[in-house]
C-alpha cells in the first residue's frame, strides 16, 4: 500500500510543478484534473488502509467535484471565451521550475518544527510545498482563470495537509469546503467571462484601472 501512497504523492508533486510551467490554459486545467484525481486516489488508499468509511465518501466527492466538476466548469468558460488561450506568465519556464523546486525545499525545511505529528511527515512537506506553489501560480499567472486553478491547488494542498496529519477534517467541514470551492470556481468562471467581454482580455493586470 505504501507504494501507492508514494506514487500518488509523487504524482501530486509533478502535477503541481507542471501547472506552473504550462503554455496553454487548457493544459493547466487538464493537469489540475489529474492532480485532483490523484488526491482522491490517495484518499481512497488511505481509506482502505485505515478502514474508515467517511474517507471513502470524501474520496468520491473529491473525484466528483475537483477532478470532474470544477475542471469542466473552467473548461466551459475557456471555450466560451475562445479556445487555445495562451497562459501569460510573468517569468520564463526555467525560472518558474526553479522557484517551484525552492518551494518544495522550503516545505521540506520547515515541516519538522511545525509541531504537527511526530517525526518527519513527508506528506506535510509536500502539502506545504504545494500550498506555496499554488500561491506562486496565482502570483505569476496573468489570466483570471489561472487564479482559479491556483486556488484549487491551494485547496488541494490544504486537503492533503489535513489528510496527512489527522486523516482529514471532520466530515461536515470537508463537505462545506467542497461546496465553497465549487462556488468560488463558479464565481471565477463567471467573472472571467464578464471580464473578457468587457475588456476583451482576461488579464487581471487590467484591473489596476479600477484603482482610485
Amino acid at each position: 500500500m505504501d507504494f501507492w501512497l508514494d506514487v500518488t504523492a509523487m504524482a501530486l508533486m509533478v502535477s503541481t510543478s507542471w501547472i506552473i510551467a504550462i503554455r496553454y490554459i487548457l493544459s493547466g486545467i487538464k493537469w489540475l484534473s489529474f492532480q485532483s484525481f490523484m488526491l482522491s486516489l490517495l484518499t481512497a488508499v488511505l481509506a482502505i488502509e485505515t478502514g474508515r468509511t467517511d474517507l471513502f465518501v470524501i474520496a468520491a466527492i473529491t473525484l466528483a467535484v475537483k477532478a470532474i466538476a470544477i475542471p469542466y466548469i473552467l473548461y466551459r468558460t475557456l471555450k466560451a471565451v475562445g479556445i487555445d488561450r495562451q497562459a501569460e506568465k510573468s517569468f520564463g519556464r526555467d525560472r518558474l521550475i526553479i522557484a517551484v523546486l525552492a518551494m518544495w525545499a522550503i516545505g521540506y525545511y520547515v515541516t519538522p518544527d511545525l509541531g504537527l505529528g511526530s517525526g518527519h511527515n513527508l506528506y506535510l512537506s509536500i502539502s506545504i510545498g504545494m500550498l506555496l506553489s499554488g500561491v506562486l501560480i496565482m502570483i505569476t499567472h496573468n489570466k483570471a482563470l489561472m487564479q482559479g486553478v491556483g486556488l484549487i491547488v491551494i485547496e488541494n494542498s490544504l486537503f492533503l495537509a489535513a489528510l496527512s496529519t489527522s486523516f482529514g477534517m471532520p466530515f461536515l467541514v470537508d463537505i462545506g469546503i467542497f461546496l465553497d470551492v465549487l462556488v468560488v470556481v463558479v464565481l471565477i468562471a463567471a467573472l472571467s467571462f464578464r471580464m473578457d467581454e468587457l475588456l476583451s482580455s482576461m488579464s487581471i493586470e487590467k484591473l489596476r484601472r479600477l484603482k482610485g
Partner: peptide, 12 residues
C-alpha cells in the same frame, strides 16, 4: 497599487 498579484506577493 491595485494589482491582485502584488497583494499575493506580500502575503506569500
Amino acid at each position: 497599487n491595485g494589482s491582485v498579484r502584488s497583494y499575493l506577493v506580500y502575503l506569500f
